[in-house]
Design a protein around this nucleic acid. Structure first.
Length: 583
DNA sequence: GCCGTTTTCGGCCCGACTGTTTTCAGTCG
């Protein structure tokens, strides 16, 4: 079993223990261990073989034994027994808003409810309202929650969340009672999938701001509305929370509500170690219970809060408790890449295959955007569904791009189109074009578009063979996932990264918000192996050039700097880098 | 289940809101 599989099982054990009513700190130990493994840079197989599990913080004897069993035997009787002791439907009950482990346990113990449909029936017949701790209001809230769940997704792509949040942010900022306003939470941390949108505002009149927010035209449902906090559902089904604080409290609240939860826990612990108390209202001297203003250490910005805790500023994208505290304490937080440092994209499509736009339109738009170059990497012949190019059409496209570039040169324009292909990786790792043809192209991206159901060793081998081809510059969308739609195919990403390191092959960070592939959690491993990143739009229409910005956000989450990303290079240096593998 | 120079037990982040309660438990973030 690999890291992800073990992490998934530990996370499920955490939830199952919660449902059993176990000690919450025990359940947290499993949840924390799962989280650690999700982003752990080394392969568990290696760690177990070298008997180093105990060196990982939070991995005590019990967890070490269980993980070792999972990695070496592929199964864990403790988990199987735990799972068998509870009906599988209980897990989905937890997804109903307002239902936590305690209430689910009561529903199961008293009414033998073990699925969403059973819960719906019991609510409709009024049985749920009779239970201790439940009443009419809870019952109808559960019914609303089940109906809502049928109608809307609970998770959303960051691109949709940004489109939803930006206009609301503008409206809040224009309200006369709002002093400062920002988004926080997973949106500010630039997670690829967003559960809800968190807004934070400072004001002397929170009631007015809350009233304004809950009355916005996009609000279709109000979950909760108090003096300083409101929770609503917006059109499209995204939940949005607003918290209103005083202006001096704003930086503390911004840090607090940006999270992540795991990051905040460490922040609080650091405060306690220094005889301080940190919460969303401030950083206070002494451990007294009250938020006494006389004991406040005023901080005008988030950076000052970090400094008070002997840390350098930690950019929101890194606040996942994934090593940022050690780095910040030792002044090792890198200067993360900015999207404006990107000079172009090396994986894009045109109307020659399944893109929408002509070469001329692409040239005009990308010059307008300020790019130095833009590679046209249309699909290869086997991608019939995407109108992939036969070799003769690709030859014609090479000629046409050359003539466009001559015209650009004549006009004194420095922008250039680059020729290229997104060549299919076929079975056994053969490529869809001959090396003779690939050798004529500026940029070769190799990607898998078929044979998704092959075994992990087969797919891993295909990708490694593609990396070994001297004409392949980079591997495209490595895992093949489509966020919220399609799981990645099975592959050993660490082994492929190792092969890229050995062959000098780059890995794409596909910046389409449906992909963000390679996942940000794997970039620190890739970086540690010296593998370079290319942030590509995989543009199929002009507006997809906006993905550069989103992709840079994901690269920042992966701790990448300008030097780690190939397409920050100006054209002459890029051409040298492209020639390097072939030489 | 984890952790530890106040160490093998007794802690483990903390506050807002809701609903069901006659003072608080559960959920959420």
């Amino acid at each position: 079993m690999d890291n992800d599989q073990v992490a998934a099982i530990l996370a499920e054990i955490g939830v199952l223990l919660e449902l059993k009513g176990e000690n919450p700190f025990k359940t947290r130990a499993y949840t924390n261990a799962a989280r650690t493994l999700e982003t752990f840079p080394e392969r568990l197989e290696t760690i177990v073989a070298e008997n180093r599990l105990g060196e990982i913080k939070g991995f005590g004897q019990a967890l070490q034994d269980k993980i070792t069993q999972l990695v070496t035997t592929g199964s864990l009787p403790y988990y199987d027994e735990l799972k068998a002791s509870l009906p599988p439907g209980l897990l989905e009950l937890l997804e109903v808003p307002g239902l936590g482990p305690k209430k689910v346990k009561i529903l199961h113990d008293k009414l033998n409810i073990a699925s969403l449909s059973q819960l719906e029936t019991a609510c409709q017949s009024g049985q749920v309202a009779e239970l201790p701790g439940f009443a009419a209001k809870t019952q109808s809230k559960i019914l609303d929650g089940i109906a809502f769940r049928k109608k809307y997704a609970s998770h959303h792509l960051i691109s949709l969340a940004l489109r939803t949040a930006d206009p609301i942010l503008d409206q809040l900022r224009s309200h006369p009672d709002v002093i400062r306003c920002a988004t926080a939470g997973s949106l500010r941390r630039h997670k690829e999938i967003i559960g809800d949108i968190d807004f934070l505002a400072s004001s002397r009149n929170p009631t007015a701001v809350i009233a304004f927010f809950t009355a916005l035209p996009g609000v279709i449902l109000i979950h909760a509305s108090g003096d300083t906090k409101a929770s609503v559902v917006l059109e499209g089904g995204i939940q949005a929370d607003l918290r209103v604080v005083t202006d001096p409290e704003f930086p503390f609240a911004l840090a607090y509500f940006t999270g992540s939860k795991e990051h905040n826990i460490v922040m609080r612990q650091r405060a306690i170690e220094r005889g301080l108390r940190l919460n969303e209202y401030g950083l206070f001297r002494s451990n007294s219970e009250t938020n006494d203003p006389a004991l406040l250490l005023p901080c005008a910005t988030e950076e000052e809060i970090y400094n008070q805790l002997d840390l350098d500023f930690i950019p929101p994208e890194l606040r996942e408790n994934q090593g940022e505290f050690d780095a910040a304490a030792e002044h090792r937080i890198p200067r993360l890449i900015e999207w404006t440092e990107l000079r172009g994209s090396l994986h894009n499509h045109s109307q020659w295959s399944d893109g929408r736009d002509s070469l001329n339109d692409i040239i005009a738009a990308m010059i307008d955007l300020g790019c130095d170059y833009w590679a046209i990497t249309d699909h290869s012949k086997s991608s019939v569904q995407a109108n992939g190019l036969q070799p003769d059409r690709l030859q014609r496209q090479i000629t046409e791009i050359a003539s466009r570039n001559r015209r650009l040169a004549d006009e004194g324009e420095s922008f250039r189109l680059l020729t290229g292909t997104e060549v299919d990786i076929l079975n056994e790792g053969r490529l869809d074009f001959d090396n003779d043809l690939l050798a004529q192209l500026d940029v070769v991206v190799a990607s898998i578009h078929q044979g998704f159901t092959q075994s992990e060793p087969e797919i891993t081998r295909r990708l490694i063979r593609a990396a070994e081809n001297p004409f392949v510059h980079m591997l495209g969308h490595l895992s093949g996932r489509l966020l919220l739609e399609r799981h990645p195919y099975k592959l050993d990403a660490h082994a492929v990264i190792d092969a890229c390191a050995e062959t000098g092959t780059w890995i794409e960070l596909n910046a389409s918000p449906y992909r963000f592939d390679l996942d940000w959690r794997l970039w620190s491993y890739a970086k540690s192996r010296g593998v370079k990143c290319v942030i590509n739009c995989d543009a199929h229409r002009l507006e997809h050039s906006g993905f550069l910005r989103l992709g840079a956000g994901i690269a920042r989450k992966g701790w990448l700097t300008k030097a780690d990303v190939i397409n920050t290079l100006p054209l002459p240096q890029l051409k040298k880098a492209l020639a390097q593998k072939r030489a």
